[in-house]
Amino acid sequence: MTESVLDVLMYLFETAGDEGVPPEPDRDGLREELERAGFHDREIDRALEWLDGLAGVRDDEVGAAPTDHGVRIYARTELARIDAEGRGYLLYLEQIGILAPHQRELVIDRLMALDSPEVDVDDIKWVVLMVLFSQPGEESAYARMEDLVFDDRAWAVH
């Protein structure tokens, strides 16, 4: 089975269901469940590190709080991994009110932490869902994003 960190994260996210994930999930239990599902140790370790990063990132760690009227300039490393379509999709999510600028920064941080050579719009959708799911009070934005994830027609380049 060839899997990526995102595959492991998506499995965890989809199996979490509506009850959510406890604030301090049992790591050994998660590891055992992932091994039973057929994931390998390396991807499991990287996925758990990714989750630790999501839980441990504070607003001040992703830079100064961006304003609603600021312009995001991407670093070379970000440009190399997030193509124009992906950057456009992130801007679209901001414009329709699903992501606030500080959440966009958290999403970019978590995309870069995936360690994939490049990310596509589907990867972005799932990471946005995971970020919104992890933040209290974002139920409405999460529900709107969930509609976008499961309705591919909602995003089209014009």
Rank of each mutant, 00 (worst) to 15 (best):
F13A: 03
A16E: 02
A16F: 01
A16G: 07
G17T: 02
G17D: 05
D18C: 05
G20I: 07
V21D: 05
V21H: 05
P22D: 01
P22Q: 05
P22E: 02
P23R: 03
P25W: 00
P25S: 01
D26Q: 02
D26S: 04
D26E: 03
R27G: 12
D28E: 08
D28I: 06
D28W: 04
G29M: 09
L30G: 07
E33N: 06
L34K: 03
L34T: 09
E35K: 14
R36M: 13
R36V: 15
R36G: 15
R36Y: 10
G38F: 02
G38I: 10
G38V: 06
F39G: 00
F39Q: 01
H40E: 05
D41K: 14
D41H: 11
E43L: 08
E43P: 02
I44C: 00
D45R: 11
A47I: 09
L48E: 12
L48W: 07
E49K: 14
E49P: 12
E49S: 13
W50M: 05
W50P: 06
L51G: 09
D52L: 12
D52H: 14
D52C: 11
G53E: 00
A55T: 12
A55R: 13
G56K: 14
G56T: 10
V57T: 15
V57P: 03
V57A: 01
R58D: 15
